[in-house]
Nucleic acid binder design. Sequence first.
DNA 1: CTACTTATTTTACAAAGAAAATAAACTTGT
DNA 2: ACAAGTTTATTTTCTTTGTAAAATAAGTAG
Lengths: 402, 402
Amino acid sequence: MYHKQIVNVDRVKQVNTAAIYRLIDLQGPISRIQLSEQSQLAPASVTKITRQLLASGLIQEVAQQASTGGRRAISLMTLQRPYQFISARLGRGVLDISLYDLSGSQQAHQQLSVQSKDPNEVTEQIIEDIDAFIEQYHDNQPLIAVTLTLSGLVATASGTVVYTPHYEFRDFALGSKLEEHYKLPIFLGNDTRAMALSEHYFGASQDCLDSALISVRNGTSAGIIIGGEVFMRQHRDVGEIGHIQIDPLGELCQCGNLGCLETVVSNKAIENRVRKIIEQGSPCSLSAAQVNINAICHAANMGDQVCKQVLQHCGQTLGRAIAIVINLFNPEKVLISGEIMQANDIVISGVQQSVSHQALAAFERDTTIQAAQFQQNPTMGGLALVKRALHDGSLLLQLLDS
Amino acid sequence: MYHKQIVNVDRVKQVNTAAIYRLIDLQGPISRIQLSEQSQLAPASVTKITRQLLASGLIQEVAQQASTGGRRAISLMTLQRPYQFISARLGRGVLDISLYDLSGSQQAHQQLSVQSKDPNEVTEQIIEDIDAFIEQYHDNQPLIAVTLTLSGLVATASGTVVYTPHYEFRDFALGSKLEEHYKLPIFLGNDTRAMALSEHYFGASQDCLDSALISVRNGTSAGIIIGGEVFMRQHRDVGEIGHIQIDPLGELCQCGNLGCLETVVSNKAIENRVRKIIEQGSPCSLSAAQVNINAICHAANMGDQVCKQVLQHCGQTLGRAIAIVINLFNPEKVLISGEIMQANDIVISGVQQSVSHQALAAFERDTTIQAAQFQQNPTMGGLALVKRALHDGSLLLQLLDS
DNA sequence: CTACTTATTTTACAAAGAAAATAAACTTGT
DNA sequence: ACAAGTTTATTTTCTTTGTAAAATAAGTAG
């Protein structure tokens, strides 16, 4: 059996401290009195809490605000630059490593290739590469965390990699291995879900509590943000939409089924389809050898009918999946990420067609569909994981003590 | 902008009192020391809270438990029978009214027909009929609430009916009209979602935190329970899966699209399909005139191939929708409700086929699919709405004061 | 009858937030 | 320039809540 949230006294302090830190972080320069209004805590409590945060160096007093008729308010801001962390991202055959500070500015970046698929070998390489990276790029500022994002299912709480499409991880305790080595808080997560959270904190979905990010690259997956948090079930995140059956008579998917979303909506599927049409002799500005996703988008933007048609069909199909997400989650914004968004207008118009037909009218009119903001930076997701840990108090308390 | 949960002192008491009440209600006869263990509150705190609950008559001391080597523990239970409420359900052309007590036993029931589709007229009828029902069946025990469930979208917090398929409600403030008349707490909700919650509290999904109920009757809709609560977005519930496009080349749906789930999975769709096959001359144990959902299920169970095939196909199609729900929500149990479950084995085997192919393996092996427990009683959903209000503290506090 | 267990209650206390009082910084009217 | 009034920030005082520890109650086992 289970019990729901019980509140004891210690927890109150933790929750409220985290809430105040979060407000200062999100709402930039803000006075104590404004914090009190927004948090519904008494001014006295805000003073108590901010005193502690000031003492530990997590926030600072900055300029005074203009007077509104009396004593001028003192603005508070979070300190970002002194807090650095490592964000790594394990893609298909690729390991990206970055050094960030909390402001979100990337101090250094490196990309390496990964040959092995064996969990132990890959883990070893990750540790070696990050070690070398730190050696080379990190100065003497304190590191507060190491994050790793990857495609696949991750049990976030236990730091276990349940499953990955590109490597042979199966219920592999990657988190504890990294923790053992670095003696730092480790944050592990699915890459799409982490990117969705990054868009929520810093990107295109900053202004809304409920959003979804659909990532179309090697495959298709979704990250769903509900109430400002990644939607999770029993400590593992969900959002694997790539194998929704979109057409019972469709193409064979590598998973063994017919007509999965990924058989139409993925870079490889798009490339294959264009190649096929060219080989059938349709007039196209690309030769079969030139076909790749970037070229296709460029050609479509230039007016190439074949490429345009394929991308539009892809958009329509994606729209059917997005309509399902809208009906089930009713997000304010749906963001699409991936190389296809170089042909933004073509894809979006296809998506809109399907959504306007298939999503509930009451929901559809509330939902904006647009391109994601962070298309290029695969390690950006780690930043969100660190922010989240600060905002929910778990990492914040560790920094308060030290 | 928004702020997340802030905890102030008042709230602590409310949350913990509700949590203790919920534990006593769910875990039947239970001692204070067991409550302390399960709630992680100190024994002294449990004593304080239970004292209050005892004083207001919400719980009572029952038998002592057997000794485990020392003083025998005193069992506590919630009091159910003295608390009665009215549960109404507005279906297509039908109004069901029941009198329940908190134990879930139905004291009286009445079914009436509804002719009008006009919101004001329907509201007037509901009030008149409930008044007459109370007059006839209710004795002098206190009524603590009135609930109304219906198909359509309901904004639970504001008591507004956003949309209904069978009546012309559009953003209609039904809740406040009822509240004005009855001067009692009113709980309004979508019927499928309320039934899903009832299954969670009292039925087939009692033992799990995450479940889904799929209702197949006039249409198809889902109720999704996450963490023991109805999954909601900005105060309105979601789960309208009836218009997921399941086949881009499928039949025309009344919503104007092709191949919606409801064009295959609904009582009417099944009946039409069987009728069509019979008219085409296939040998069937039913005549076209005899066709209705109950007869079809019975014939299928007796081995009729036409009926069996249609139901199996319906199951397979439903399975595709359920696979989506499983991939997105990862519930422990999926319950199916509706007349089709009279042919339980046939439908479930079809569902299982699709799910085993299309749901993620990691999720599918954790998910049980079975028939819902409360198939017959349309007002059962209201019971869950009242329970929820007691368990989350909102209704509990009103009863504590009085 | 004594020693030991277990359950519950009482007492004393610590921590957090609320309310009121005070201090500080500024604006405005004279 | 200066008093009066505002607005913000902080401090003090008080109430509430939960908890630890001690006390009490009610059993068991030998």
